[in-house]
Design a protein around this nucleic acid. Structure first.
Length: 511
RNA sequence: GCACCGUUCGUCUAGCCAGGUCAGGACGCCAGGUUUUCAUCCUGGUAACACGGGUUCAAAUCCCGUACGGUGUACCA
């Protein structure tokens, strides 16, 4: 490893919402930077004007803010290496392309996109692949094949041109990757990539290498989809005479089922988000849900992503950001793609939820209650949450576990009625009603003591009586400790519910 | 097609570099326990070294091949 100051970057293209794979790449960069006391930079790679999507950059920035991933330099914060948006750096790239032209590492090419795609089709018919390489470039329209006079003529006629990298022939390039170790490739299998487009913009390859150098990036940590262009990048550094940074190519996130990498479609199909935040497509108006909107805590989301492809080497699974920074190392990132598992994502959220204080959860749950038209004190909400929070993975699921604290049952689960409302249930519950009416200390413990004593005195089955009582109080056989519910809803409500239950359920005739 | 990368329970993974473990953990699933119910929780169980060769006393671990999968192959990033 080199001993340079650690400077890493995340360099998204603002072509849409950030996919969770991208978030993970950024996260690993962030963790790596923090771990080594380095800097983390956000650079926007918007060299393709045709694919620019309004709102995408803002979306990316907001996503990281939500995740707690902070940048030390970049479009948001500025910094000494700016500008951090490639469209604003446009003027400088040409110079670098020319340096390559002068050193003989690049050349002009005048072939049009149409001509090239014709060629590709032609080759395909012959079951071959067209590659713009050392062999083919001799018969194409470029400054290597054409005479100086022909080239000058083309320039005079203002013929559009691109600048291509002159890929050397039959050289073995040996590269090192922090995750994959040695990677070898023969340059003859590569092509003369375009570095500079006819619209005056650099392609990714040129802009990326130039900016990484200028911004003194020490480690390039990016997705595995870039591994095939690593030799080009290494050759580019060499052609410029620059030191190469260290490289680490992260494995991809795969679909939960079937083959291939995780895509937006999988989320729609299987019902889980693939984006951190909700995204509305500005063109179609289509809305894709996000982890934030689905009720995930950012800590849980980050924790889940961190463990997808990386592990600490011991058996810990729950990490807050500080702990991730402490434990992270690029060497412990796996080599193979990870299937995304929505079930485990929920489990992580559950873990974070049960660790939150009742007060904090109450603050989050209050607006949901308000929306349902429930008016109650925050103290009550806190007490209810303490009773039910272990049962849920998301704040919004709290309602399903607690609505009966607020709403008197109107109907009773028919299956339970059939099974638990027995011949003498009416009698028993009527007696309990009288019993409860006389209790002054309406605490869970006291009520429980009295009711249980009564059941024992009368030698009745605990299950039979308690289930019937639960049925009239809750409306179904579910929920936390029954006496806690009774205490919370209070004496008046309890008696009213029992009365209503008796009225609706009535006496069951012996059948 | 070609190039590169990869392959341990259904899933995330430990173990591989420095060969010797009943191949460990977590999610899920199943069973039992706890409980007045449901859920939680606890305990237990389920289940994997892609295949074939080699090297070796000994291979998940080292080597070779095959299969399968992924990515790339744009004037996209």
């Amino acid at each position: 490893m080199n001993t340079r100051k650690v400077r890493v970057r995340f360099a998204p293209s603002p072509t849409g919402p950030l996919h969770i794979g991208g978030v993970r790449t950024a996260l690993y960069n962030f963790l790596f930077a923090r771990k080594h006391g380095g800097k983390f930079i956000l650079r926007i790679e918007d060299t393709d004007q045709t694919r620019f999507v309004p709102g995408a950059e803002e979306y990316i920035i907001e996503s990281f803010k939500w995740c707690g991933i902070q940048f030390d330099e970049g479009v948001t914060t500025g910094g000494p290496y700016g500008p951090y948006r490639q469209s604003e750096r446009k003027a400088m790239y040409r110079k670098y392309a020319e340096m390559l032209l002068e050193s003989g590492n690049a050349y002009y090419a005048f072939d049009t996109s149409e001509e090239l795609s014709e060629l590709r089709k032609l080759f395909e018919k012959k079951k071959k692949t067209f590659t713009y390489n050392a062999f083919e470039r001799k018969q194409l329209k470029n400054s290597l094949a054409l005479s100086k006079q022909e080239v000058d003529e083309l320039f005079e006629k203002k013929t559009p041109y691109v600048i291509r990298f002159k890929m050397p022939e039959n050289e073995i390039i040996i590269m090192n990757d922090l995750i994959r170790e040695k990677v070898e490739v023969n340059t003859s299998t590569l092509d003369d990539k375009i570095l500079f487009k006819s619209d005056g913009m650099p392609t990714y390859h040129l802009a990326n290498v130039v900016d990484d150098h200028l911004m003194e990036i020490s480690h390039v940590i990016r997705g595995e989809e870039w591994l095939p262009s690593l030799p080009l990048h290494v050759l580019l550094y060499k052609a410029f005479g620059w030191d190469t940074p260290e490289f680490a190519h992260l494995p991809l996130l795969l679909k939960p089922d079937g083959n291939g990498k995780l895509s937006k479609r999988d989320g729609d199909r299987l019902g889980f988000p693939v984006f951190p935040l909700q995204w509305k497509d500005p063109k179609t108006g289509e809305i894709s849900t996000g982890y934030r909107e689905d009720g995930y805590f950012p800590e849980a989301f980050v924790n889940m992503l961190a463990l997808l492809g990386w592990n600490p080497g011991d058996e810990r699974e729950l990490f807050i950001m500080e702990e991730l920074i402490e434990a992270f190392s690029i060497e412990r990132v796996g080599k193979s793609g990870s299937r995304f598992d929505p079930e485990k994502a929920k489990w992580f959220n559950h873990q974070y939820l049960i660790r939150k204080s009742d007060e904090e959860l109450a603050d989050l749950f209050s607006p949901i209650l308000k929306e349902k038209g429930i008016e109650t004190s925050i103290e009550t909400i806190i007490r209810i949450i303490s009773l039910v929070k272990e049962r849920v993975a998301f704040v919004h699921e709290l309602w399903d576990q607690s609505y009966f604290f607020f709403i008197r049952p109107e109907d009773y689960d028919p299956k339970t009625v059939k099974k638990r409302w027995k011949t003498d249930s009416y009698e028993h519950i009527s007696r309990i009603k009288e019993l409860l009416a006389d209790i002054d200390d309406f605490s869970s413990e006291n009520i429980e003591k009295i009711v249980k004593a009564w059941i024992e005195e009368n030698e009745l089955g605990m299950g039979a009586v308690m289930n019937a009582l639960r049925l009239v109080i809750v409306g179904a056989l579910k929920g936390p400790h029954l006496f806690s519910i009774i205490e919370l809803i209070g004496k008046n409500e309890t008696l009213a519910r029992i009365e209503n239950g008796l009225k609706v359920l009535g006496k069951k005739e012996t059948g």
